[in-house]
Amino acid sequence: MIYEIAAYIAGVFLLIGALFSVVAAIGIVRLPDLYTRMHSASKVGTMGAGLSFLAIATIAFDGPLILRAIVGFTFLILTAPVSAHLLARAACLAGYKPDNLTELNDFAKDQ
């Protein structure tokens, strides 16, 4: 019985994760500048890959495998904001300007 329920939950996780990935990709194409695109890639994109790891953790009835899936998920969630932050910082310091829509820019003001 528990196997059946786990299979259903894992399937739902997979579908939601794939949907998140598609939305992240749409965001990367539609959003106007680097910094707004970063929101889409770092949050929504991470959710997409993370949910597939969670799906494995739910479906795998084997201790080490579950542990590895959870470690992978944690790793993904911890590294995504770091890489997004590094890229945003590098772009900011290199002088890439945000889109014209950006009204407030304390960073440029303080430089």
């Binding site: 794939a18 994109g45 890959a49």
Partner: peptide, 14 residues
């Protein structure tokens, strides 16, 4: 492009 490549990696993981 770097951001998009990063996104490709996470899609690849999925």
């Amino acid at each position: 492009r770097v951001l998009a490549l990063d996104m490709l990696v996470s899609i690849g993981i999925a």
